[in-house]
């Protein structure tokens, strides 16, 4: 049963890869990579059930965090053409620390 479900997830990952290769815009590709990462996290959880070793869930936690950070980093890079940019130069308005708008 779990094997069949893993196959279904793999199929949907293949479909997302097709969009990643075709996607006309940059943002289509970023969206596909992000969605692929979510599917990978779920696949890792299922895979740790499949091989009966619950340690795989830890890797899934790490992957979920890295997927998010990677997506944000790619978007930041393509918006400012650099990752070395201060927070005060990025935000349109500056909030004082701890001030609740």
């Amino acid at each position: 049963m779990i094997f069949f479900i893993s196959l279904l997830i793999t199929l949907s990952m293949a479909l997302i890869l097709a969009r990643l290769l075709r996607g006309p815009q940059l943002y289509d590709r970023v969206l596909a990579v992000n969605s692929f990462g979510t599917k990978t996290v779920l696949f890792l959880c299922l895979f740790s059930f499949l091989i009966n070793r619950p340690d795989g869930v830890d890797i899934a936690i790490l992957y979920a965090l890295m997927n998010f950070i990677g997506t944000i980093a790619v978007l930041k890079f393509f918006r400012y053409r650099s990752l070395d940019i201060a927070l005060s130069d990025m935000a349109p308005r500056e909030y004082a620390a701890g001030e609740d708008k």
């Binding site: 049963m1 479900i5 990952m13 997302i16 097709a18 815009q25 596909a32 599917k39 779920l42």
Partner: peptide
């Protein structure tokens, strides 16, 4: 789990099939 995998497949089909970035 089967329902979740089916919804995931539907989402992937939608990402492949919808015509516009904002729709995907």
């Amino acid at each position: 789990m089967l329902a979740g995998a089916c919804f995931m497949l539907i989402g992937s089909i939608g990402v492949l099939r919808l015509p516009d970035f904002y729709a995907r």
